[in-house]
Amino acid sequence: MLKEPAPAEAGKTPKIRVEDLHKSFDGKVVLDGVNFSLPEGESLVVVGPSGTGKSVLLKHLIGLVRPDSGRLFVDGRDFWALSDLERTAVRKKFGMSFQEGALFDSMSVFDNVAFPLRRSGRPPSEVRERVRECLSIVHLPNVEGKRPSELSGGMRRRVGFARAIAHEPEILLFDEPNTGLDPIMTDVIDEVILEMKEKLDVTIVTITHHMESARKIGDRVALLAGGKLLYQAPPEEFLKSDDPAVRQFVEGKAEGPLTVEFERETATAAPEAS
């Protein structure tokens, strides 16, 4: 059932490659053998029911979570075989936006977006200019001096987005970038992602529930369920697939293979809890 991605061109290493990733928390299996490889400049969208470990998978890609087994390659280098200094350097190639924004609440919005720029030693005038630019990209002028706690949830998420793209990373990871945003803002964020993909040739992994966004920004869409990437295909193909799990998710049905999976898991989890 697992559809292998087209083999990368000979001699060209994929930007990100993940090999047989396994991870469990307190005995609960979250990732159960995830494989994929993503060539430079491609955009992968991961969809799937809530609580199936999409965020955990994303955190594995930037090395925030160490897998129990399996390997992660960034630019062909085995991430966990590097020294911690090299790992920190590799992480600078990434930009990641978190579900709740994860803004530094002791700093102003300006300082948040400026953080990655200052840490890489850019001169103050350049930092100022770039921060303004990034905040206007997400349609948030005039909030520079505010504290994250003064912003709404959607605004925080957009500031987090601006911070993720500020240092012009080669790889972008977005954890539900447009959940909880109004339809207009959702489309704005999608447009920004598309634009960066086309202009800057960045590699992107996005997690979302929105099939519409997935269709728009993904070169490939993958369904994560039961700890595995069940199905990967270009968006149009994905939407037309007759795979029962994909059909259930695309059509938003309460009954189907994904719910069976869910019920089985909660049934096995219940006795442990007591």
């Binding site: 955190k59 930037i62 978190f98």
Partner: peptide, 10 residues
């Protein structure tokens, strides 16, 4: 997740 964000920002 601010500590994760720090790590993610290199």
């Amino acid at each position: 997740e601010q500590i994760d964000a720090l790590t993610a920002l290199g």
